[in-house]
């Protein structure tokens, strides 16, 4: 027996460890996405893929092409800064085909923004439903021009 023989258990372990590290390195080589790390710790190609998704929202300008009256009406009132789609939901499908109906929202929608809540900025007018004039907001407020009564 030579004096510096590595015991068989230890030898096996070294081989096994090398094998595991080897498998990991090979797996890492093949499984790391090609564009990984080009800009940062993520897959650069993801940017393109996400940008290629069909958009859901069309934007106010698109709505104004067909609903000129509403766009002009809303521009007069305090809701002028709101996007149509923040009340009606994503409208791309409707722009492509007006037969696809959009929501005509009611009181719950108004309360999403106007219900009294200490975490809201003070400039946003808030009401407490129980203290206000009624539950059906649309009876007294025109949604597109809320300072006007219908």
């Amino acid at each position: 027996m030579r004096p510096h023989r590595i015991p068989p258990q230890i030898l096996r372990l070294i081989l096994l460890t090398l094998a595991i590290v080897g498998v990991y390195s090979v797996a890492r080589y093949f499984l790391t996405p090609a564009s990984f790390g080009r800009y940062g710790w993520y897959r650069a190609a993801a940017l393109g893929e996400i940008a290629a998704y069909p958009p859901d929202y069309a934007g106010k300008a698109a709505c104004a092409q067909c609903h000129k009256d509403k766009a002009e009406q809303i521009a007069k009132g305090p809701h002028k800064a709101l996007s149509c789609e923040s009340c009606h939901g994503p409208g791309m499908a409707h722009v492509g085909n007006p037969d696809v109906k959009l929501v005509k929202p009611a009181a719950p929608l108004c309360l999403r923004c106007h219900e009294a809540n200490p975490s809201r900025p003070e400039w946003l007018k808030q009401v407490t439903l129980a203290d206000h004039y009624g539950e059906n907001c649309l009876e007294c407020h025109v949604p597109h021009q809320p300072n006007e009564a219908p």
């Binding site: 939901g89 929501v103 009611a106 009181a107 719950p108 929608l109 309360l111």
Partner: peptide
């Protein structure tokens, strides 16, 4: 999800 947000009462949770 978005439709729920538009139509469900926030205080109704």
């Amino acid at each position: 999800m978005i439709i729920e947000l538009l139509t469900a009462l926030p205080s109704a949770a």
